[in-house]
Computed example of a mutant assay.
Amino acid sequence: MAQETGVFIYGIVPSDVEPIPEAEGVGSPPSEVTAIRHGNLAALVSEVGLEEPLGRPADLTAYETLLDGTVVVAPVLPVRFGTVVTGAEAVGDLLDAHHDRFVAALAELDDRLQYLVHGRFVEPAFISGFLAGDSSAAALAGQVRGRPEAESREQRIRLGEMISEAVALRREAENRELVDAVGRYAVANAVRPPSHELDAVKLAFLVAADDEDDFVRAVEGFAEQRRNLIRMRLRGPVAPYDFVSAYQLVE
């Protein structure tokens, strides 16, 4: 019995955009990526089995690789990962229903790229600086140092809470300072939730193509000033995942 199939939608692009030649879609084996066109729009799609589980790391990588590769040559509206419709006709209905809104959004994103800035505190450096500036925490650290964990459990818990609170406050400050340092080279920014207890900064920036070099230099300067305290990573350009409404329009 043949498996029922659906259409996985990756993103919305202008109608003249073709899938990048090396594009591989989700699924095992990887599906072929094609474009379904309607008016001034096209949807990047691939066929998937309706009973095939999606969400493997390889599927997410395929989704991001396609969209991140596309945004280098054309604006793209990412559609929420895992969006599957019944067939090409349903894709056409989607593009028709939101045609003008999608066209306007693509025009706003033309020559704009997303960058992600992620920094994580160097734990020994952060803790030593925190203890040097907080006498109560330093006293607690002295009480637990060299003592068995069972005998100093309450003090360790309290010290851990104090360090976590300090990290959260410092994270808010570092995020603000990063925006102050590089924000003039970005069209917009969005704070992302931390993915690790020692995350120091985590923001997405939408950057005009003409400002890319200045933006990257500003991020590098920010990172250099904190190189002993924060390990920084810049990722991009990527598709504007944090700055589009197509996530909400396609459910």
Rank of each mutant, 00 (worst) to 15 (best):
F121R: 13
V84Y: 06
T65W: 01
P30S: 06
Q114S: 15
E64D: 11
L41Y: 02
A58H: 12
P30I: 08
V71G: 00
F126H: 13
L50G: 03
P78M: 04
H118I: 13
Q114L: 15
R80N: 13
V48I: 04
E32N: 08
A139R: 08
D93R: 14
D16M: 12
V45N: 01
H98Q: 10
G69R: 03
A88C: 11
L67W: 01
H118A: 11
E64I: 10
A62L: 08
S128Y: 08
Y63M: 00
G119W: 15
T65G: 05
V26D: 01
R147E: 07
A97E: 14
E24S: 09
P29I: 03
D68S: 05
R101T: 11
V45L: 02
A42I: 01
A90T: 06
A62I: 06
H38G: 05
I12D: 03
V103I: 10
D100M: 10
V79A: 06
A23K: 01
E108K: 12
L94A: 06
L77Q: 04
D110E: 14
A105I: 10
G49Y: 09
L77D: 04
L50D: 03
L94P: 01
L44T: 03
G146Q: 00
A43D: 00
A107L: 15
G142D: 07
L77S: 00
G133E: 15
T70F: 05
E108H: 13
V117A: 13
A88I: 05
F121I: 14
P21K: 00
A88F: 04
S135C: 11
A141L: 07
H38Q: 06
G82Q: 07
R147D: 05
L95I: 06
A138V: 08
F81G: 11
G92W: 12
R101G: 14
A35R: 03
